[in-house]
Amino acid sequence: MNRIERKFRELKRQKKKAFIAFITAGYPNLSTTKKLLLEFARIGVDIVELGVPFSDPMADGPVIQQASEVALKNKVNLRKILKLVKEARRVTQMPVCLMSYYNPIYCFPQDKFVRAAVDAGVDGVIVPDLPPEEAKGLLKTAQQSGLDIIFFLAPTSTGERIKLISQKTRGFIYYVSLTGVTGPRQKLPADIAVNLAAIKRITKKPVCVGFGVSSRAQVKQITRVADGVIVGSAIIKKIRENRKRADLVSRVSNFVLKLKA
């Protein structure tokens, strides 16, 4: 059993829902990312999702795009991010996933990436532009090494897709709350509950909802119907607002505490 699975079992026992925080690795710089990671572990964030910056993030809105650009300017790459996770792993058992577009993984190359990720203590990988049809190679090595590949479902997914993805995903299902890119929204679609119910009829695997979630009220709305909630752009925005302050980490930490309270 890996750390993600253990985490969901533990939450289930406690009748709690997972709070998953996304941050772009290397924004505003790698040392801050490491501090944030450890701070998130300290305040009880259940899983951290570390975004690997990419030149063409087609599923991301302006907030994460901009964070990626800064990280790339800082010359952040997958190797450095894995090193960061490895260092953090010495002090925390909090599950860590990487969110990366496929090309940086493909170029690593793939098999070597899986070994390096497991070695660093990464528990899962989320690849927004890699549906299971194209993931055969990655799935094979990942399964042998115990690395979770987490797949997406969307409001446009058909029953057939729900079956396929429930079967292929490990760790949890990432349900995209809306048709669109990442970024804070005032209002989330009304069909989330209905769509989640349809997914839940097909699979027992945990389903976590992300995209657009930016307020405490929305977190509550989601966790009523899902096993977990993922917040990304709202946290990145908070980092951006405080990027020049010495107390950035504690300010972001307070914001996250309020979200997950």
């Binding site: 927004p128 532009d129 549906p131 997406f152 969307a154 446009t156 897709r161 993805i165 995209v176 048709t179």
Partner: peptide, 8 residues
């Protein structure tokens, strides 16, 4: 190689 939303 696209997001799940576009598969449909």
């Amino acid at each position: 190689y696209v997001p799940e939303t576009l598969i449909y």
